[in-house]
């Protein structure tokens, strides 16, 4: 690991001025950054530890039922809180489908939004990677595309965004609160991550020195709580990144879909909100035909791996079907698993 200086500010203003200095990286839970520093994929000269900044490790409910979650809230605390899980069950299921118990105790909500792709060429400093070393090329282009983007990729990069949480946040219309040298600003989560285009090295809209301080879930997002699922296909049922995942949210009134939200994970370089599918579902009956048409629309234009595209369509339809049946009373024993509720194995 490359040597670095370590700074642990106790005030936000101090953290921001330290973070703006060249070569700085913010350290929160460290589960992604330290890992990349060990491989040499991340080489910060200064770590600015934000774990002691006041006020970032809690959440608060708005009077209208919206929720503001501080960036340093640990994934496990957000997922296990009964009120959060009741209002935003798909987010709780997404969180609990990710990583392991140990990692969720360390990882933070802000850090999850900031996490880097798990493309193994990105993590390996001996492979060409435009995201890590602009202009070096992309080793993934010539490989089996199963683990890579089928939507939103480019000749420069086809890495997928690995987050489960962000797929739920995208569907829930979450807002990212950002502090920086110029003050506070905010952006919708769906605009926060960038598609690679010709320059994949900047994967978010954060300017140097800027820091996520909170995530906000609007009150309207709790309106989907009765019909919400997060499903995730992966190579083993637990502790694996998504091959394909889907958040499906429905509001059903008088047997008709009043409003639908659908977001996909594992298929694109950013959490993929499927707005065309949502438009098709509005006013439709919550049945197999509607969901199949929505799934087709969600994968419109996808290319690169036919079997993965088929899987994604089926998972999207399945997530919508399960959401229509109703949110489980409790996050299933195997969160995100298509086997939940069945005896998958004994």
């Amino acid at each position: 690991m490359k040597p670095f200086d370590y700074i642990r500010p106790e005030r936000l203003g101090q953290a921001l001025s330290e973070g703006a200095k060249p070569g700085s990286a913010y350290l929160a839970g460290g589960t992604n950054l330290l890992d990349l520093m060990k491989t040499g994929a991340a080489r910060p000269e200064r770590l600015v530890d934000i774990t002691r900044l006041p006020g970032l490790d809690r959440w608060e409910w708005g009077k209208d039922g919206g929720l503001r979650i501080g960036a340093m809230v640990r994934n496990s605390d957000a997922a296990h809180d009964p009120d959060i899980a009741a209002a935003f069950p798909a987010m709780a299921e997404a969180l609990l489908s990710g990583a392991s118990g140990q990692l969720r105790n360390a990882a933070t909500m802000g850090g999850n939004v900031m996490q880097q792709t798990r493309c193994h060429f990105f993590a390996d400093p001996f492979s060409p990677c435009n995201r890590r070393a602009p202009g070096a090329g992309c080793a993934a282009q010539g490989s089996d595309r199963r683990g890579f983007a089928v939507l939103g990729g480019s000749d420069a990069c086809i890495a997928t965004h690995p987050s489960d949480l962000c797929v739920a946040l995208a569907a829930l219309d979450a807002v990212v609160e950002i502090a920086g040298p110029e003050g506070l600003r905010e952006t919708p989560l769906t605009d926060f991550h960038l598609l690679p285009g010709t320059g994949p090295e900047g994967h978010t809209r954060l300017a140097p020195g800027e820091l996520i301080i909170a995530l906000r879930l609007p009150a309207a997002a709790a309106g989907f709580r009765h019909h919400a699922r997060y499903l995730k296909l992966r190579d083993r049922t637990s502790f694996a990144f998504a091959l394909v995942s889907a958040t499906a949210l429905l509001r059903i009134e008088d047997g008709v879909i009043a409003e639908a939200r659908l977001a996909l994970g594992g298929v694109a370089p950013k959490p993929w909100r499927a707005t065309a599918a949502e438009a098709l579902l509005q006013g439709a009956r919550p049945d197999a035909d509607s969901f199949a048409r929505a799934a087709e629309a969600a994968l419109q234009g996808a290319a690169g791996h036919d079997a993965k595209i088929t899987l994604a369509k089926r998972l999207a339809a399945r997530a919508l079907t399960q959401a229509a049946r109703g949110t489980p009373a409790r996050v299933p024993a195997l969160p995100g698993s298509v086997h939940s509720g069945e005896t998958a194995h004994v």
Partner: peptide
């Protein structure tokens, strides 16, 4: 009191 991976925990933090 919470389980964590000591390998991904910076001691100073």
């Amino acid at each position: 009191g919470r389980r964590m991976n000591a390998c991904l925990a910076l001691a100073l933090s």
